Simulated assay, not measured.
Amino acid sequence: MNRSRHVVVLGTGAFARALVKAFAQRAGGPTVVHIVSGDHDRARHLAGLANAHAALADRPVRCCPHRLDVPGGADLRPLLGRHQPDVLAVCASEYSPAEIRGTQTAWAELIRAAGFGVTLPLQAATALRAASAAAEASPRTAVVNACFPDAVNPVLHGAGLPVLCGLGNVSTLVSLIRSELRIGDESRLKVLAHHAHLHAPPTPDQEVRAWLDEQPLTAVHDILRRERRRPRADLNEIGATAGAAVLDALTHPRDYFAGHAAAPQGRPGGYPVVITGRSIALRLPPGMSERQAVARNQEWSALDGITVDQQGKAHFTPGALDALRDHWPDAPATFGPQDVEELRTRQLALRERLHQLPAPTARAQEGV
Rank of each mutant, 00 (worst) to 15 (best):
A302C: 07
A16P: 06
T141H: 09
A240I: 03
H197N: 12
P162K: 13
R44W: 13
D185I: 06
Q123L: 07
T218P: 05
K313S: 12
R3F: 10
T241Y: 03
R363S: 09
R325E: 03
H260A: 08
R129N: 11
H199E: 15
Q347E: 14
R353V: 08
D185S: 08
H197C: 08
T317M: 01
L49K: 12
L68C: 11
A146M: 10
A323S: 12
V170L: 14
A233Q: 13
H195W: 05
G319V: 01
H194S: 11
A281I: 02
A89H: 04
A131K: 02
G160E: 00
D339T: 02
A43H: 02
L122K: 05
A242H: 06
H355A: 13
T172Y: 04
P272H: 01
A135K: 15
E227L: 05
G266E: 14
L250Q: 12
D185G: 09
E214K: 06
C63G: 09
Q25C: 11
V20P: 07
P329S: 10
S279P: 08
L235A: 10
A196Y: 01
R351S: 11
I100R: 11
I223F: 07
F148K: 10
L350W: 04
V152W: 11
V7G: 14
P30Q: 05
Q265H: 11
